[in-house]
Simulated scan of single mutants.
Amino acid sequence: MNETVPGSVTIVTQTRVQPGSEEAFAAWQEETSLFIARLPGFLGQTVMRPSPPAQVDWVILQRFVSSAAAIGWLNSPERLARITGAQPMLVGRDDIHIVPDGSSGVLPSPVSAVISTRIKPGQEPAYRDWELRMASAQSRAKGFQGYRFEPPIPGVQDDWLSILRFDSEANLQTWLDSPERQALLAEAEPFTQEFHARVARSGFDQWFVSPEKGQSALPAWKQNMIVLLLLYPVVYLFGIAVMNPLLLGWAGLALPIALFIANVASICALNYLVPWTSQRFSWWLNPAPPSRGKELLGVAIHVAIYAALIAAFTLLR
C-alpha cells in the first residue's frame, strides 16, 4: 500500500456491520479481496476491522492507478452484485470516498477521523471560507498530525471530505468534543445539509510487513501477540542486566528515570526485532489463503514461547 504511483487514488469505504454478522462479513470481504486483486489498475488493499469503542466501523482502503480505474470498480456490475449480497449484514449506508494519493497518505495514522459534509446548493463559497477557519483551529489542537480536504467528485461522491490525523484517540476525541469545534460546527449549520464523522485507528502497523496485494490488514490481536512475545524478554533482560545493576545501582538514578530509560531502550530494540520476527511469522500473520489450522498453530507457538520464557526467567532469579 505504500508504493507511489503518479495519479493513483484510494477508495476509502467505512461500513458498519450488524451485531452477530461479523464473521460472515469477514468471509464476504475476503472473497471480495480475492476478486478485486485480479482487476486491472488495482494496486493494493488494507482492511481495518473495528476497534471499539473509538472505531466501530470496518474501514477498507483500496488503491487504484487512476480515478478512472477506481470509478470503474465502484460502478462495475460485479461490485454492485456483491454489495447487494452484503446488504443484510450492514447497518445504514456506507461512506465511500475517492481520495487522491499524496505524500501525506490517506490512512492509517495512529487515529484518523473521516468527516463527510454535504453542502446546500449554492453555499460552496461560504463553506470554503468556513473550512479555512476550521482548518486553522484544528491545526492548533494537541496531537494534530495532518489534514486532507477533498471536494466532491461529480457523478461519484456528493460530499466534501476531510480527513484529520491525530497521534492518539484521546487527543482526537478531545478536539472533536472541544467547545471551539462545536462553536464552528454551529456556524456551519445554515449552509450544511448533512454532516457526520467516523473514526479509524491502527495499531503497530509500522513494525509489521505490509500485506500483499489483495490481502487484508494484519489482525491487531496477532500484532499484539508478537509485540508481547518480544517486549517481555527485552524488558526483563534489560532490567536484570542494565537497569538494576547500572542505572539503579551504579548510577543511583531514581526509579522513574531508570524505568523511562528502560522503556526507551525497549522500544528502540523492538523497532528491529518486531519486523524481523514478523517476517518469520508471515505464514501466520496473514496466510493466503486463510487457514484456521495455521491460525491455531501460531497461537500455540506463541503460548508455548510465553510459558518457556516465564519458566526460564524464574530459574534465573
Rank of each mutant, 00 (worst) to 15 (best):
W28T: 06
A217N: 01
E78D: 05
A113W: 10
A70V: 08
C268F: 10
V12A: 02
R140C: 11
P125N: 04
L218P: 08
R140F: 11
Q18R: 15
S76L: 11
V56D: 09
S51R: 15
S109W: 14
L273R: 04
A251W: 03
V106F: 02
Y272C: 03
P179Y: 00
L228D: 11
G41A: 01
P190T: 12
R165A: 09
F208C: 02
I153Q: 01
T314M: 11
S278P: 02
W130M: 12
F281H: 06
A24N: 08
T15A: 09
T192Y: 08
S266A: 05
V209T: 11
A141C: 11
G85F: 06
V106W: 01
D129T: 12
P100L: 05
S168I: 12
P125M: 07
T4R: 15
G72Q: 04
I36C: 06
A26K: 06
S291A: 02
F25M: 05
P125L: 03
F42L: 03
A183C: 11
R16S: 05
N2W: 06
S136Y: 09
A258V: 02
G143A: 11
S136W: 14
A312R: 10
A197G: 12
A311P: 00
I36A: 05
F144A: 13
L228C: 13
W28E: 01
L315D: 13
A269E: 01
T174E: 14
L39Q: 08
R79C: 01
R292T: 15
A186L: 15
R63I: 04
G41V: 01
Q87F: 05
A300V: 08
D205F: 02
L61P: 00
A27N: 01
Q182C: 14
F35R: 09
N263V: 04
L90W: 03
N244E: 14
L297F: 10
G239P: 07
V12I: 13
L230Q: 13
A141N: 00
V47F: 15
P152G: 08
S66A: 01
L90F: 00
L237S: 15
A113Y: 12
T15M: 08
L309I: 10
L164P: 08
F313W: 10
L253W: 09
Q145T: 09
E169K: 05
V99D: 02
T277P: 00
P50T: 13
P6W: 09
Y306M: 10
E31L: 08
L297P: 07
S291I: 04
L228Q: 13
F313V: 00
F35S: 04
A126K: 13
A141Q: 03
V47E: 06
L39C: 03
N244A: 15
A241C: 14
T10K: 03
A170H: 06
L297H: 10
V264W: 09
P88M: 07
S104P: 00
F238N: 15
L259I: 11
I301F: 07
R148W: 11
Q14A: 09
I261S: 04
